[in-house]
Amino acid sequence: METVFLYPTARVEAGQRRVLDEATRQRRLTRQLEALEKDNFQDDPLSSLPPPGPTARLPAFSESEEPEKKKRKTRGDHFKQRFRKNFTTLLEEENLSEKPEPNYLSAAAPPSSLPARHFCCVCGFPSHYTCTTCGGRYCSTKCLCTHRETRCLKWTL
């Protein structure tokens, strides 16, 4: 397959070679995995509107623009607060380390006992080589070149 890059920012100039330490490699992996949990990559179309004029009022995030017809009684601020916590906060508040198992944490599947498999981070085919700089995998000199020109050091923190 011809590899064509239509994504201009994917190319960064290859700078001086340095070697990433284990902690940096781990951080990088964590960031990649976190990105896979994202709901959207782009900005909310609402927030990318041109700046409002003096009288315009933009609805806030996740609020509909139609005027609210309240059928049910509205709750106090305390109630609202409770309903706006993210996953990490809720998980912390559950205080699971002090609670009996089984629970959310104990149910996580343990690591596999099978040997790890390795794939070229450029083309996705099985790989036999490791990039000495970042620990990423590659399958051929062609893919190594692409890797070095693009991602090798790009994702460092």
Partner: peptide
């Protein structure tokens, strides 16, 4: 094989056996 992308967990068949 979740570990293919660096998630250190068993895949479905292994987790069933576990």
């Amino acid at each position: 094989h979740p570990s293919d992308i660096g998630i250190q967990e068993m895949g479905i068949p292994e987790a069933i056996v576990h």
